[in-house]
Design a protein around this nucleic acid. Structure first.
Lengths: 194, 194
DNA sequence: GATTGACTATATCGAATTGATATATGATAG
DNA sequence: CTATCATATATCAATTCGATATAGTCAATC
């Protein structure tokens, strides 16, 4: 799923600037299961404009850089929905440097292992809190898009958010239950080697 | 964490060909938390050879393309361990087209929503089984590397594998408990709109 | 009162990575 | 008898990332 499609999806919830779209992937609605950087979003929006799938209004601001507020065209909306129906979703991929590094726990000092696990837990703790759909009350125009125009929560979004939280919680639970055990095993393991 | 570092890590468990390294990221040891494609692995190995961090022996095979079996040099091993100690691990990122698409469940036919959820569950089911560290009995030279030379399971690897399974299980549990609820909500949601 | 860092906002570009393709052959399945 | 898959390396265009440039506001710290 390329960045152009992701941008169309981001604009399904209403108008937004490129910067706001990045925030949806960085902090907001999509942050825990998709990624897109500014370096790919801006070219994507330019291309989409050329193809007539989005339009933008330029808002000149005093003492601030101009704002380009993008919006789906009806053609863009149709195109996105067609993509949804026709695309075979790509594989799920989870990428974690910390887990990769922990694979080599035997080769590093115990303190580093513990620090990595703690950092991993802290990140998931933060993510779990960030996902919470209740924080979006529908009044914040630039906020996330868990609710539709009538203020009803969108079932699909709630499901995905709940799934994300369940994964975070499972991760935290596993760490609570197994961190000390790992550290003890590592101590033994290292004692045996020397 | 770049592909060169990932290759060094893959070779920490013993010698391997480029093809086998890809398998570790595709099916094997690292498959559920790191990715690397052949198009990046081969150039990385070439570069690592030039830098003296790995060496390879070319095995000519009858009626088969030559095999280059790569191995860490002691310099390569030291370099990798240094990287482990010095690198700040990059952010964890989870990427899922299916979850992104499910965000727009309101806009698609119910059957597609259900199919996407089922596919998501099936993938995680498969992953959960694939992770199982017991399948590696230490006799398979080309298999995964959950065990060290003495046949002892590596605590770090077991921890990471367990964490992966816990995440899969949590995902499957969530789907079991919430799939039907979502489908029902979507039915109501759509009825309200028309 | 001054500098530092964080936030809003767009844009560009080199470097890294993906994903597809080419090449070659054996084995297995339909 | 013909796909398709597995082994194995290699290359390359297209995509995407990550860093940087620009530019102004605001808050905090020193």
């Amino acid at each position: 799923m390329d960045v152009r499609t992701l941008c169309l999806g981001a604009l399904m919830g209403g108008e937004a600037t490129g910067y706001e779209i990045r925030k949806m992937f960085e902090d907001g609605t999509f942050s825990h299961f998709q990624i897109a950087s500014l370096g790919s979003i801006y070219p994507a929006l330019t291309k989409l404009t050329q193809d007539g799938l989005v339009t933008f209004v330029e808002h000149e601001q005093e003492n601030r850089p101009d704002k380009k507020i993008y919006q789906l065209t009806s053609e863009g909306r149709r195109s996105f929905l067609r993509t949804l129906l026709q695309t075979r979703p790509g594989e799920d991929r989870y990428r974690s440097d910390i887990l990769f590094m922990l694979t080599f726990a035997e080769e590093m000092p115990l303190e580093l292992t513990e620090a990595l696990i703690d950092e991993f837990a802290a990140r998931h703790q933060m993510m779990s809190q960030q996902i919470d759909p209740d924080k979006d009350d529908g009044t914040d125009a630039q906020g996330s898009r868990w609710h539709d125009e009538d203020g009803n929560p969108k079932p699909g979004c709630c499901f995905v958010a709940g799934l994300g939280q369940a994964m975070c919680d499972a991760t935290l639970k596993f760490i609570r239950e197994n961190k000390q055990g790992l550290l003890d095993q590592l101590k033994n393991y290292k004692a045996n080697k020397s």
